[in-house]
């Protein structure tokens, strides 16, 4: 402990570290380990059978696939929104800025119902897609849209402060040196934004994996097609299959943890490479 401690004008390193560990244990680790303990009621073959049925595998594909796609879309358009909010002045900018946070605040069920109403075959937006043979609500596309909706604020809010720190002079400097717009963006702006962008991406991705409320309304929940893993867990709980439910939870937990770990490593690597202060 001594060796870890650096001299600081602020006292209380031991206390603060102790509290942090206690807090994380109470709030995060103990509930999560409960999932593992519950699962241990199953034998290994039982566990394996429970988490690899075709229906469950299809739900993994949808949950992680749609979450990843939604996070990618959010990374791109969230960056755009953050860019517009930081770089331009326009009437109603404060309002737009506040709107970005709305998916955070809205009860997810409300979002789900609203999106379903919009994208259903007779909804405001859905009616334009129905004639060309594209069904949105009650398909994986609907799941993807709901996950995009709830993930947007993460990217905008992580990228925005970094963008605010990025002086417009950098772009001007690049232009005086003869760089075109694409070169300026890819060599000067993006490398600086990348760590923040990846944080936003990871947060949006993680949130999307765990999302339940908004998805179940728009998804239609058809087994093998538009059924997400969290819904399967609920279904199992309703059938009093607690061990089966926690088994799925454990699989989600492990996959999510691994993905977040990979993203963190990538982020660490890009931060080192670009050496942003």
């Amino acid at each position: 402990m001594r060796a870890l401690r650096q001299h600081s004008v602020l006292p209380g390193f031991n206390l603060a570290l102790g509290f942090t560990l206690l807090y994380l244990s109470l709030i995060v680790l103990i509930p999560l380990s409960a999932a593992f303990i519950r699962t241990s009621a199953l034998t290994w073959p039982e566990f394996w059978d429970a988490v690899t049925t075709p229906r469950v595998l299809a739900s993994y594909r949808l949950t992680f696939g749609a979450s990843f796609a939604a996070a990618v879309v959010n990374a791109i358009f969230g960056l755009l929104v953050a860019w517009v909010l930081v770089r331009y002045r326009f009437p109603g900018k404060k309002l737009v800025d506040a709107l970005v946070d709305l998916p955070f605040a809205l009860p997810t069920a409300v979002a789900g119902i609203a999106l379903t109403a919009l994208y259903a075959g007779n909804g405001w937006i859905g009616q334009f897609f129905e004639p060309i043979g594209v069904k949105i609500a009650f398909t994986p596309i609907g799941v993807f849209i709901a996950l995009t909706f709830i993930g947007l604020p993460f990217v905008v809010r992580t990228v925005q402060p970094v963008l605010e720190d990025l002086e417009p002079e950098l772009e001007e400097a690049a232009a005086t040196l003869g760089a075109n717009r694409l070169q300026t963006f890819s060599r000067v702006i993006l490398p600086v934004l990348l760590p923040a962008l990846m944080t936003g991406f990871a947060l949006a991705f993680a949130r999307a994996i765990g999302e339940y409320g908004s998805v179940i309304f728009i998804a239609g929940n058809m087994p093998m097609i538009s059924e997400i893993t969290p819904l399967l867990i609920i279904t199992k709980l309703e059938q009093y299959d607690y061990a089966g439910a926690t088994a799925l939870a454990v699989v989600m937990l492990v996959i999510s943890f691994l993905m977040l770990l990979i993203i963190n490593v990538l982020q660490w690597w890009s931060r080192r490479r670009t050496s942003a202060i």
Binding site: A175, T176, L177, A179, V188
Partner: peptide, 28 residues
């Protein structure tokens, strides 16, 4: 501005922080 071939030095340097000094100078 790209075609004018002017060298411009900014008050707050405007160096590219993601690049080494060498790469900064080599950028143009």
């Amino acid at each position: 501005v790209r075609e004018r071939r002017v060298g411009f030095v900014f008050q707050h340097y405007a160096l590219f922080r993601n690049m080494t000094i060498f790469e900064n100078v080599a950028f143009g």
